[in-house]
Amino acid sequence: MAQVSMTVNGKAASGDVEGRTLLSTFLRENLELTGTHVGCDTSQCGACVVHVNGEAVKSCTMLAAEAEGADVTTIEAMANADGSLSTIQQAFQDHHGLQCGFCTPGMVMSASALLKDNPTPSEAEIREYLEGNICRCTGYHNIVKAIMAASGQDVSSIAAE
């Protein structure tokens, strides 16, 4: 066991971990931040995406020890300070961009990273960016729509209720 320290959602966090402890495990088990999900073991589904030093990474494919000193943000810190949904979260609700909710934390974290780099992405750019986030429920239609809406684009011409 070795001690690891980092900043998670703006607060200092530390704990004793094994070398093999994944960042996702550290978040879920040591810090009880269970909003970050693990849906595969081959680094493909993206349910575990968090931000490390401002960049989207798959927390199941990073060792907790590698996050020593890092600034980590998880889904639990994505809402507004008063607890209301952020623009991206609200767009997901408004446009039914989630069903079972399991992939959703990763989707929101990826969407947030995308919009930081590309404030008004096209439909194709969103679909390409989401290559590493698998959703089994929505068929992506409403996720893509929600991200376009969150970026301020007019989505009224895109079919759906």
Partner: peptide, 9 residues
């Protein structure tokens, strides 16, 4: 290569 999160690592 891979996807955006993979490319960041």
């Amino acid at each position: 290569i891979g996807d955006p999160a993979v490319r960041n690592r």
